[in-house]
Design a binder for these strands. Structure first.
Lengths: 190, 190
DNA sequence: GTCTATACCTTGATAGAC
DNA sequence: GTCTATCAAGGTATAGAC
């Protein structure tokens, strides 16, 4: 490490996940990263600027993780199930999805990476489903866009319920339900 | 109106929905309700106290709305679809679900009404599904608890996506997908 | 690039008059 | 019950030395 730039981003990643944008102060970030006021405002114009840059990093990390899990070969159905069943920190929630209800989402710079994330997930799943359909590997009555969006929404909703009830069992039930639904709605062609 | 108590609650309902707990200040509530500091702290011990009491009101309202929509007679499948297709203010989100990512959720008094809401929805849907199963009206391979939780989570997730993308089309796609899945997974027995 | 000191505003709450 | 005045603490940002 040559500058405090990365330490500050690292601290912001932790605090934004834990507390969200509104409840995270520049001071708290400075303390966690052992950086002074000077370093903070030398590297980042404002709190919003730091948050936006932090979210870009977080989104790129999560996209890489998704590609790792979803990208491996195998039947589409298995790939979607792997994504649904990926282990998650239920009580903390989605590092990206939780930002949606923060005032952060009102700012273009903060919203852009968040949108990039969901758009990526959607495109990848839709593409995989359409390819399998074209290849005659699967059959389904539901449009790929709807299946993909539903899968993403299930996870976000499952995390919301798990956190609301302070009980991962609610998350698990939702995910199990989603897996079962995907299973019954995507039919292998032989 | 004889006291400002209700005006303050009313203002809190608006601001908590719009901005969440962290981003809503006692002062903003006072201004919106035309109440002074004195009235505010006469009727409510703290900001947290007001928020808890406001959420109790909001939850009771939403539960009544749900009972209205879901409670009417008809096949379970139709009742669930009515709930899914109930019109919603997509960009503002769920008045209750959005609180889950606020620091509010850490406080017992605030969490309690939120949990009451999701618990009510779940119990009602599970009961309706089990009754229909027992009566031999429907058949399904997925446990009622999973179907119910999935339905609730779909809506929460759909709202998260709609808001993240700033585009109700994402909400609509999710809901359409959920309706289609419910449709294909709950089979009428004749 | 990093630090400390400082400034200014908002927040959440209290005091006390009416 | 309602109001205005006030306060300590923290939030966000700037200044200027090193």
């Amino acid at each position: 490490m040559t500058t405090k730039h990365d330490d500050i981003i690292e601290a912001a990643k932790i605090l934004l996940w834990e507390k969200g944008y509104d409840a995270t102060s520049p001071r708290a970030i400075q303390e966690l990263s052992n950086a002074g006021q000077g370093s903070f405002y030398h590297h980042f114009k404002t709190k919003k600027d730091l948050a936006a840059k932090t979210m870009e990093v977080v989104v790129d990390e999560r996209i890489a993780e998704f590609d790792e899990i979803f990208g491996e070969s195998g039947p589409v159905k298995e790939r979607i199930k792997r994504f649904l069943l990926e282990p998650r920190d239920v009580l903390k929630g989605c590092r990206i999805g939780r930002m949606v209800w923060d005032s952060a989402i009102g700012e273009d710079d903060l919203r852009r990476p968040i949108q990039k994330f969901f758009q990526h997930l959607q495109s990848q799943m839709v593409a995989a489903l359409e390819q399998a359909l074209a290849a005659g590997e699967i059959e389904t009555d539901i449009p790929p866009e709807q299946i993909a969006t539903m899968v993403i929404a299930s996870i976000q909703g499952a995390l919301t319920l798990g956190r609301a009830m302070q009980d991962p069992a609610w998350y698990d039930r939702t995910i199990q339900g989603a897996v079962a639904l995907v299973d019954s709605v995507i039919k292998p062609c032989r």
